[in-house]
Design a protein around this nucleic acid. Sequence first.
DNA 1: ATTCGAATGGACTAGTAGGTCCATTTCTAG
DNA 2: CTAGAAATGGACCTACTAGTCCATTCGAAT
Lengths: 205, 205
Amino acid sequence: MTSTRGLTAKGAATRTRIVETAADQVLARGVGGTSLDDVRLATRTSKSQLFHYFPGGKHELVRAIVACQGERVLDAQRPALDTLDSWEAWAAWRDRVIAHYTRVDGVLGCPIGSLASELAAVDPVLRDDLAAYFRRWSELLAAGVARMRERGLLDDGADPEAFATELLAAIEGGLLLSQTVGTLQPLEVALDGALAHLRTHAVGP
Amino acid sequence: MTSTRGLTAKGAATRTRIVETAADQVLARGVGGTSLDDVRLATRTSKSQLFHYFPGGKHELVRAIVACQGERVLDAQRPALDTLDSWEAWAAWRDRVIAHYTRVDGVLGCPIGSLASELAAVDPVLRDDLAAYFRRWSELLAAGVARMRERGLLDDGADPEAFATELLAAIEGGLLLSQTVGTLQPLEVALDGALAHLRTHAVGP
DNA sequence: ATTCGAATGGACTAGTAGGTCCATTTCTAG
DNA sequence: CTAGAAATGGACCTACTAGTCCATTCGAAT
């Protein structure tokens, strides 16, 4: 983790400006497709600033980007993600996910999903960081399924962990397909499919 | 497409050696992480050979790699993929998919999935190539679902196209998650989930 | 055996990448 | 006000990358 000690307000602002702008660039062109000069230009900073805030160089910057995108992805699903305790809540969450990727023009693909497929095989540290975000995400979904069971809205056949990974895989895989086709349709179909599967375990009227 | 005119048997052999070896390297380290020198070294060829067989340079080589991996992925699922007309066939296909990724040590992740997420946003030509492979794959799965309906093994609620993308997304998303975790478990769970969903539309004993 | 195109070897170039270094300006605390 | 740390600017270095070019060897058809 980058220490935040010895950072003035101005410095901290510059640092986050770098991370957030660079995160956008990386989302659009990939880590390999984004040079430090690109970042420097887009953030109106100098080379020395980049290494001042990220002494570990590009690796450390990318790690900060991973953290940034990880939070972004989770935040984009809130507050629905935290209160999955009714079918309405799941529908709202579903709409929120779809809406989020409709908003971003041009660039489809999950921010952390893209990072994962580009970095997981290469960098063990970033791989673990990304795995942690996926686990957090998965746990929130699993908690939602568990809550539905507690409330008697789902039968005992609905395994929370299993459905969490099924839903997560549907989103990631759906977005991957969407990226190649250029339409959100695959994501919608995949996600709705996984949710339909969940609903086969519904109990009650 | 690279013309195969004016290629002797030896030349053709060298060309395929380059493509197949480079495909392995790209699968392990990504397109950006694989330099032409890496390819040159691994294939015991010279720079001039690379450009002799791929006048368009790296772009053309990558395109050949996409084609190679696309066929590989489909072939890995055969013959089960072509004869999805019973529940046993689906189970066999499922096992074949899992087994294929168990075999490859170290490197998880779908060959064309990784390529897609790295290239789709950047290169429209390769994006279309990849989309075509996904469509072929999807159509084979959809045909399987359709055949199950014709045979009265699935009810009319099972939309072939929708289930095809749901299954495909489960595989791609599952593999992405597997890559970060380092285990095949996410893939198995996601794929089995999608298949379980399909089975909720089963008809008969 | 000769000949001509295919196959190969490898030096070379221009551009770009990440990263270092030092000088300068701007804060902020005492 | 001033001293020291933080913030910034930007030249510079080295390694590597895709791509070019020409010379040489190989192989098959005549």
